[in-house]
Write a protein that binds this DNA or RNA. Sequence first.
DNA 1: ACGGGGAAGTTGACGTGTCACGCTCTACTT
DNA 2: AAGTAGAGCGTGACACGTCAACTTCCCCGT
Lengths: 154, 154
Amino acid sequence: MSAENRWLTTTEERAWRGLLRMTDLLVNRAGRSMQEGFGLSATDYTVLAELTRAPGGRLRIQELSRVLGWEKSRVSHHLARMVKRGLVTREECADDRRGAFVVVTPEGREAITAAAPRHVDDVRHYFLDHLTPGQVTLLAEIADLIIEKNTQDR
Amino acid sequence: MSAENRWLTTTEERAWRGLLRMTDLLVNRAGRSMQEGFGLSATDYTVLAELTRAPGGRLRIQELSRVLGWEKSRVSHHLARMVKRGLVTREECADDRRGAFVVVTPEGREAITAAAPRHVDDVRHYFLDHLTPGQVTLLAEIADLIIEKNTQDR
DNA sequence: ACGGGGAAGTTGACGTGTCACGCTCTACTT
DNA sequence: AAGTAGAGCGTGACACGTCAACTTCCCCGT
């Protein structure tokens, strides 16, 4: 099932290594921008974005874990830090007493509201502005496809 | 210069978030495979690959830092761990006595030689096999472009 | 009704990445 | 020759991610 023994072509190599390098660069750029401008890490931003898009600004932790694609313990650790900085709070769950909710605080909402426009600008400036609409579409399709193939058999 | 105030379209959102998610998944998959099969992290593999492709299996640390796109201190920390595990060694630099070389040890060479075929299979299995040659080419072009745009003005 | 498998979430230890700082050495200026 | 700006690299403290183990609770079979 392994040992196909076929080395990567130059183009394949460029696509693979390039993908890693590109994403690394973009995450660093955007992350640095959020950090310096608003005291939010890239992951803080993602968490807050996910929470504010949910009704009531609240989500079951498992649900958050699922949409982010993060392990439970990672979510737990990260929420602990965000709680400590007043961005979110935990709440008990009446339905399932093992469970818990996370809720954005007003501070958290304020933080991401302030940061969002800048974040959009960053994504455009570092990334989208350099691509044609066709390239963007193609990339979206590729990403969706690869994600699907690598999560369905989870 | 900021405040363009134009929110991302659905496709743009899919491309951006999808890129992050896809890369995350792929790095995790490939990394786990290397770790479990050969005791190498994804970054170990990259470092060893870079070293073995260099003449003599040796590189100035600054050079390694450059090709990897890593900060100096990150390289330093990571090499310290790899030295401890016998994968590489440091050597003094005669030309510039501030400088240093890293050299792959026979153990390091052995490790990456053993891991390489599996790594290629992984890249194909998780990634390339799902794409058409045209998509791979397009991705390579996009990556090169974005990398260039985001490194020239470093 | 009770017993066990398993789900939800937390915790602690450890490996990894970043930041600020420090050390040594080079190269340039005067 | 002496002074200094800056290059090359290392270190320690802290933020983050992963893994394995643990606690609490749900649910299902008997």
